[in-house]
């Protein structure tokens, strides 16, 4: 694990789309390892995977609009020795195929990588039916699953490369948008699943974020700094198993926490952090998340404001958390 963070003033949209980063990383992995196999449920072209289908026609399986079958087939492929990556929109990979993830994959000890694209508000104009605020929550109580909210193209490419080898066996769920996100990490950074990334030191409050909210947390730390509040920032891209050590250390060091996630805080990152703090180091925790609501159509900019998924909201919650320390 060796990562470096881009300077706050340079935070802007990454040049590479997330789906292109995924296609590139999986293509490179498939060239090295003949076991790497890709499955989709009729969203492959929308997910930018056409180049992979051309490069590896045998190992690119379009299952049609059959998410439950796709997840089961992926489990079977893994029992035959392949390393399947199976994609649909986040709502369908998790909510629709929940029992297949639970039994065919996890309970049956299969070796499957699941991808849910367009998590939370990044589903944007596809609206409430396609907007998973619950995918992490649906999966988080399933024993043994690893849940990853991938931050930017650099982290995504490194994780996909790692999950394409023999180091990891089990069921892994990755959520990330198809489109462009803010770049957080410098090229060449490497990461460790299960370890949070400490992006910035601070003494008054810790901002623990995942996915698209990491960049917002970094911007929030800058807002807070201007107001004399020193914020520690953590990218908790592994939501399960969550980095309990880093959470406890942050709680002890800063005395309060704000979580920020593109997901319902019920069952999401807030829940994971709060559970950890309750057990190891109780401190005030404020949550930035979608709230216990359904999604809706709108631009990502509109939805960010509608659900309060902004740096300003994180900063406001941070001030409240600091006040609650007393």
């Amino acid at each position: 694990m060796s990562y470096s963070v881009l300077p706050t003033e340079e935070i802007k949209q990454a040049k590479t789309l997330m789906r292109d980063a995924f296609c590139g990383a999986l293509t490179a992995a498939a060239e090295k390892n003949p076991r790497v196999t890709y499955l989709d449920a009729d969203l492959a072209s929308a997910f930018g995977m056409t180049p992979f289908f051309k490069a590896f026609p045998d190992r690119a399986i379009d299952c049609g609009i059959q998410e439950a079958d796709m997840v089961g087939v992926a489990a079977g492929l893994s029992l035959a020795g392949q390393i399947p990556f199976a994609h649909s929109f986040g709502c369908f990979t998790t909510r629709r195929a929940a029992d297949q993830v639970m039994l065919s994959c996890l309970y049956g000890r299969a070796n499957v990588r699941l991808i849910g694209s367009d998590p939370g508000i990044t589903a944007s104009h596809n609206g409430g039916t396609h907007m998973p605020f619950e995918d992490i929550g649906v999966l988080r109580s399933m024993p043994g699953i690893t849940i990853l909210d991938l931050t930017d193209p650099v982290l995504l490419a490194d994780i996909v490369a790692q999950l394409s080898g023999d180091k990891y066996y089990g069921t892994y769920y990755m959520r990330f948008p198809r489109k462009s996100v803010s770049a957080v990490y410098a090229e060449g950074s490497t990461f460790e699943i299960g370890k949070g990334n400490l992006l910035r030191e601070g003494g008054d409050v810790t901002l623990i974020a995942c996915g698209i909210m990491v960049a917002e947390a970094i911007l929030a730390a800058a807002i807070l700094e201007a107001e004399g509040i020193s914020a520690r920032v953590v990218d908790m891209f592994t939501i399960k198993p969550v980095d309990r050590e880093l959470i406890a250390e942050s709680a002890q060091k800063t005395g309060c926490i704000v979580t920020a996630e593109n997901h319902n805080e019920v069952g999401g990152l807030f829940a994971a952090v709060a559970e950890t703090c309750a057990a190891l180091s109780p401190v005030p925790i404020e949550a930035v998340g979608t709230g216990d609501r359904f999604g809706q159509v709108g631009s990502e900019g509109y939805l960010k404001q509608e659900y309060g998924l902004t740096a300003e909201e994180i900063a406001a919650k941070a001030k409240r958390a600091v006040e609650r320390k007393g």
Binding site: D58, M70, G72, V73, S78, L79, A80, L103
Partner: peptide
């Protein structure tokens, strides 16, 4: 193969068969 939630074994069997072909 672990089974018990009905219907699921059919997909896993298809995956095993496809895996054998690929390999």
């Amino acid at each position: 193969v672990t089974t018990g939630s009905l219907g699921q074994g059919a997909s896993v069997a298809a995956g095993l068969a496809l895996g054998a072909k690929l390999r």
